[in-house]
Design a protein around this nucleic acid. Structure first.
Length: 271
DNA sequence: AAGAATCACAACCGCCGCTAA
DNA sequence: GTTAGCGGCGGTTGTGATTCT
């Protein structure tokens, strides 16, 4: 039986000979070359036969997450963000399953995205990423906002067809129903429609943002603890004016999690 | 300019399920 | 039925890069 629960440092002589840590260009080349000639799979024997002083697991991971020719790298697009949020709300931390619907993206990349971005925002909101509060914020604020940004990007780009799930599935007027995007599986973003990438905007507020927040605050009336953040569905679905006010503030000021933080503060201050 | 803090992501670890012997 | 080995998965860590103070 394979040894389980092995303590760090408790390695056999053969294992001690194994390399760990970052892969070198030479190792990458060796692995690529070997797989090109012999195919992938049977990772332990592959590692041995290729002459790599790595575990089979390490070779497999390096190939799947980095060296595979069809692996997509770079910013997670708005479309992909939306899809990740949608699929995670359905399946939870089933990263590999989610990755199957994002061609070229690895489970590791999606997992990292979730942990570094999404969980960070939950932390900012001072709530658990699995809490209903945060899920509501995602579902009724963040995701609709993403849809709008995708639609705006598509409209401004060309008269070309919208990305499949941005074009008809997440209608803001669908009375708050955010069901499964149609054609989701075939929704691989293309270079043409993936130009709207994750904005690296600062979390701090600038003057324009503050003005936007003030404008939004005028139009959002929190009646107290009986009103939850889910009330925002109505604002999105009715296409109220404050949406366009936000849009007028420029690309950097589109509704982001900063906005959720603002709403959260508004909510708390009225409780 | 420099040190601290934070971010992003590659890589590792341990567990689990499957399968062949 | 049991065991050994492997692949896959999700969680976690290490570290270089970037941003902040």
């Amino acid at each position: 039986m394979e040894q389980r629960g092995k303590v760090r440092g408790d390695y056999s002589e053969e294992e001690m000979d194994l390399r760990r840590g970052p892969w070198t260009a030479e190792e990458d080349f060796t692995l690529i070359n070997y797989i090109a000639h012999h195919g992938e799979g049977r990772w332990n024997s592959l590692a041995r036969c290729a002459g790599l002083k790595r575990t089979g697991k390490s070779c497999r991971l390096r190939w799947l997450n980095y060296l595979r020719p069809d692996v997509r790298r770079g910013n997670i697009t708005l479309e992909e963000q939306l899809l990740i949020l949608e699929l995670h709300s359905r399946w939870g931390n089933r990263w590999s399953k989610i990755a199957q619907h994002l061609p070229g993206r690895t489970d590791n990349e999606i997992k990292n995205y979730w942990r570094t971005r999404v969980q960070k925002h939950a932390k900012q909101l001072k709530c658990d990423v699995n809490s209903k509060q945060f899920k509501d914020a995602m579902r009724y604020l963040w995701m609709p906002r993403l849809v709008e940004r995708i639609q705006a990007a598509s409209a401004s780009a060309t008269a070309a067809p919208l990305p499949s799930y941005a074009s008809g599935s997440y209608h803001l007027a669908d009375s708050g129903s955010f069901g499964q995007p149609q054609n989701m599986v075939n929704s691989q973003p293309t270079p043409e429609n993936s130009s709207a990438t994750v904005s690296a905007s600062s979390d701090s507020l600038n003057h324009n943002q503050e003005q936007c927040y003030a404008a939004a605050a005028d139009q959002i009336s929190y009646g107290g603890d009986q009103q939850s953040m889910t009330n925002q569905i109505d604002y999105f679905n009715q296409g109220l004016d404050f949406n366009s006010q936000w849009m007028d503030c420029g690309e950097d000021n589109l509704w982001d999690v900063d906005d959720m933080l603002f709403l959260q503060n508004q909510f708390n201050s009225n409780v």
